[in-house]
């Protein structure tokens, strides 16, 4: 148990942060992080060392969150969301409120407001640094979908960050 506790101490923040960014909810992220470590305990025997341990654990975490989404009926391709909030094409003179300098708190807050599908792709690509091909494999969607989700996520995020400034 001591060895496993050490693993927890070393990786819990990484696992929790990924869960938090993908779900946008603290208590859900905590529950998921708990589940990830329990799964890790069960499956650690099957880790063969083909990839780095952190990559393997990262994959385990992403799968756990995606499974959670599926269980809750969250769809990755937010087709209805597009209908509700179409991307505004900015033309001519833009909103005079320039986007504020990005900071951690504002960005985390804005990410949590994204629809789950956008949030997942944004987290995996921009925050975690995965390529579209890898994301498409993880989510079971096409590379094109991953790219378009990312584009929509970024544009929506930009809008949210600007709104935050207006409210301030």
């Amino acid at each position: 148990m001591g060895a496993f506790e050490e693993l927890y101490q070393r990786h819990n923040r990484r696992v929790y942060s990924l869960c938090l960014r993908m779900t946008g909810n603290v208590s859900e992220a905590e529950d998921l992080a708990q589940e990830v470590f329990i799964q890790l305990f069960r499956k650690i025997g099957s880790f063969r060392g083909e990839s780095a341990f952190t990559t393997w654990l990262h994959r385990l975490t992403v799968n756990q969150v995606l499974m959670h989404f599926r269980k809750r009926g969250v769809k990755m391709e937010q087709t209805t969301e597009d209908g509700e909030t179409p991307i505004q094409i900015v033309k001519g003179t833009e909103n005079p409120n320039a986007m504020p300098v990005v900071d951690r708190i504002a960005l985390d807050k804005a990410i949590s407001q994204l629809p789950p599908g956008y949030r997942t792709v944004f987290t995996l690509h921009d925050i975690e640094g995965h390529e579209h091909e890898e994301i498409a494999r993880m989510l079971g969607c096409s590379v094109g979908t991953s790219k378009s989700q990312l584009h929509k996520a970024r544009m929506k995020l930009r809008g949210l960050l600007r709104q935050q400034k207006v409210k301030e």
């Binding site: 990484r14 929790y16 320039a98 986007m99 300098v101 960005l107 640094g129 970024r154 544009m155």
Partner: peptide, 24 residues
Amino acid sequence: EVRNDLQSIVSFCQSHRGEYSAPP
């Protein structure tokens, strides 16, 4: 302006990659 904004979001994420927050 859109390009600059997206650039600053993406750069921020890249430069802060590997920073994690602790569970409550």
